[in-house]
């Protein structure tokens, strides 16, 4: 039995198979419409997350399965003081697979070690969010046709953004990737990630102005500055609107430069950019459903 805790849990070859399956699901959804008939997904969400939870639930419903679960800790037995390990033992009796989100880092790993059903980490605090990374990789592979040999700009909160750290780690396994990190001084990538890139002799540069590098990017991954990651409200207010991608900046980009964003977007991408065919962040949401469908099938050995 396998779980998914970290995007690096799967080898590059396993990811290729997963993405091939997701691509086939996209082309032939009817072929998969009853693959999970009689199977149940439990969504155990200890903190609110409409988008990820609904994406998981849609994925299971698209496969013909059903869904049980809770969407905040208050409506679960956690409010009575039940431990994660006890909860998952109970859930294991009800469902065939579980997607868990928890504000504490490592909670899904604790669940996995006591579970008799596959557990998917659907986000644990600021730590990991592997299905977002799988979504990002599938979007790039589907729309660019490859996962190697491109220049990707990653812009915004590179210090606290877990999606950024996971994406950088995941892309580091492919050849010919050049990273351009665009952030204010205070939100640069953490030291350990920089050291890892140095150790693996990967090409990267760090800049402050988005305009200076826009023209050389094949992909631009925008991120939101998250209020909940700051202890100091003043810092958040100062940095939240540091980058705003608008029409003028898009005019500097290559004609085939794709714009991605894990969403929700606040101010960092102006709504006028939404009409640009290079803005693919809403398509990304659709790929999130395909990749979660492929993941559920893979972990349930139904692929």
């Amino acid at each position: 039995m396998r779980h998914l805790m970290n995007p690096m849990d799967f080898s590059v070859e396993e990811l290729d198979r997963l993405f091939d399956l997701a691509a086939d699901i996209e082309k032939n959804p009817e072929k998969y419409a009853h693959k999970c008939t009689g199977k149940k997904l439990a969504t155990c969400f200890y903190e609110p997350s409409t988008r990820t939870r609904l994406s998981f639930e849609t994925a299971m419903l698209n496969l013909g399965g059903s869904v049980i679960g809770f969407s905040d800790a208050g409506s679960s037995s956690a409010s009575k003081g039940e431990s994660v390990s006890d909860t998952i033992r109970v859930i294991s009796c009800f469902a065939d697979i579980c997607a868990m989100r928890h504000p504490k880092e490592g909670a899904p790993m604790v669940a996995a070690s006591h579970s008799t059903i596959p557990v998917i980490n659907a986000g644990d605090g600021g730590h990991q969010h592997p299905t977002q990374t799988l979504t990002d990789l599938l979007t790039i592979r589907s729309l660019k046709g490859r996962l190697d040999n491109f220049t990707i700009g990653i812009c915004g909160d590179l210090k606290f953004g877990r999606t950024v750290h996971s994406l950088v780690n995941a892309l580091s396994r492919y050849s010919g990737i050049r990273f351009v990190f665009i952030s204010p001084e205070e939100l640069r990538i953490p030291g350990y990630l920089r050291e890892k890139l140095w150790d693996n002799a990967l090409t990267f540069e760090e800049v402050i102005r988005l305009e200076d590098v826009m023209g050389k990017l094949d992909l631009l991954y925008m991120t939101r500055v998250q209020r909940e990651r700051f202890f100091n409200e003043e810092d958040y207010v100062r940095l939240k609107d540091f980058y705003i991608l608008n029409k003028d900046k898009m005019a500097l980009a290559k004609p085939d430069c794709l714009i991605l964003h894990p969403l929700p977007r606040v101010n960092e991408i102006s709504v006028e950019v939404d009409k640009d065919p290079r803005a693919v962040y809403f398509k990304q949401v659709q790929y999130g459903v395909y990749v979660r469908m492929a993941l559920i099938l893979t972990l349930l050995d139904l692929a």
């Binding site: 431990s83 390990s85 504000p103 504490k104 880092e105 490592g106 909670a107 790993m109 604790v110 600021g126």
Partner: peptide, 12 residues
């Protein structure tokens, strides 16, 4: 780490 699951589940 105050955000780690070990900070609330003492028996881990």
């Amino acid at each position: 780490n105050p955000r780690c699951i070990t900070s609330i589940e003492q028996e881990l």
